[in-house]
Design a protein around this nucleic acid. Sequence first.
RNA 1: GCCGGGGUGGGGUAGUUGGUUAUCCUACGGGACUGUGGAUCCCGCGACUCGGGUUCGAAUCUCGGCCCCGGCCCCA
Length: 427
Amino acid sequence: MDIQRPRGTRDFLFDDMKERKQVEDTLRKVFETYGYQEIKTPLFEDLNLFTMKSGEGITEQIYHFQDKGGRDLALRPELTAPVARLYINELQKRPKPLKMYYFGSCFRYERPQKGRWRQFWQMGCELIGGRSPDCEAEIIAMSAHCLEELGLENFEIHIGNLGIIRGILDGAGVSKEEQDEIMAIIDKGEINELKSTLNKFNISDKISKILLTLVNMQGHQEIIEETKKIVSDNEDSLKALQELKELLDILEAFGFYKYTVNLGIARGLDYYSGVVFEIYVHDLGAQKQISGGGTYNLIELFGGGEVESTGFAFGFDRLMECVRLCGAEKELPNTVDVVVAPISNDEKFKAIEIAQKLRKEGIKTDVDLTGKKLKKILSQADNLQAEYVIMVGARELKENKITIKDMKSGNQELLLLSQIPIYFEKL
RNA sequence: GCCGGGGUGGGGUAGUUGGUUAUCCUACGGGACUGUGGAUCCCGCGACUCGGGUUCGAAUCUCGGCCCCGGCCCCA
């Protein structure tokens, strides 16, 4: 019987994992320099955690099941809700702001395609209990920092504030449900569908015109002034706009200018409330969004206190795709530094002894225990990109020596057993 | 869930107007070389995605499943 890997999942081989680990370590390092601490939540959670407030879209894509106790559980489709739950369960009384990051896989039952898998990894941060818009600026600047650290350049960071459009809709007396529907269509970017929906909800021509103008607003700081004129008679919108302006100013203090103000971004998940942002890499094709985030009020919805929180996550697999695409990969570390080669079976014990000494010094060492011929061992060592081979043979051992071969130059010399640690001090 | 393109040894491929034993490269194992790698030569290993149909005969035609790729929907 031939058992296949489930659809939409992947096996990662040695080099894949080396590359992924490098990217993971890079992000981890950046997050930690901003004072974020790692957390880990379960792979599955109570189904309600996700169905409650993540919006309709996501519930159809959830892997859910009942365990033997009849509990309705779900493989997590995202990590923001689990982190909010963790906060409410464990961290409510900690001093604020709380900065945390996570790295883990999520699951969605969807049709796989480029940049989309059924098991995928997210790496992101949540900043709970900070002040808006300062924490939003930090999060955005930090995500840009991550991308720069990875050597990526071809990304665009789009920033918007849902409060501007929500303010207009509130002012026009549009219900929460209708608003959500409208926001979903804006997120899609379907102008015609937006027009017909605005019509369907009997929204006045004047308001419709404002909305259609807003969703197309894209640019730099000048957008703020232009938008101010358009929404001048709506206080909530003006307030949201002012907040966005402040965010941009702070962002520039962080040293980041390469942003795009985009009032047309809405985010798929319903729990976002204020500032939202998305990062695109157009070369990726259809699944070009590598990150998204914003400010949300999940914690309140789950029965926690009234706490501002902002978060974002990288689609880790898409990030990997970018790194590959841009040729930004770093050199992969070698598998072993040294291979110890017993010339015959008689030297096997001695070879093991030498290998163990090296390993205890932290040197990546392989020792051949299969009784291969020296020729094969050298070939294998070459394949593993070992820097040195230590040949342990009867001739040398008679004088308490071994032969050490530098695999790059091909040079070799005799060494006393006692000198081996000294020889490798430089490694 | 929908549309389109695919699936041949471990990896990459040739072959598809149906017709002997399915091509080549590479990787791997062994040998030429009894203690010296990345070279050469020889030998070996190993595949038609799965199931049904048409046929004297199917990798090749046909139907369906599975999986992969690109796109839609949706999303990271």
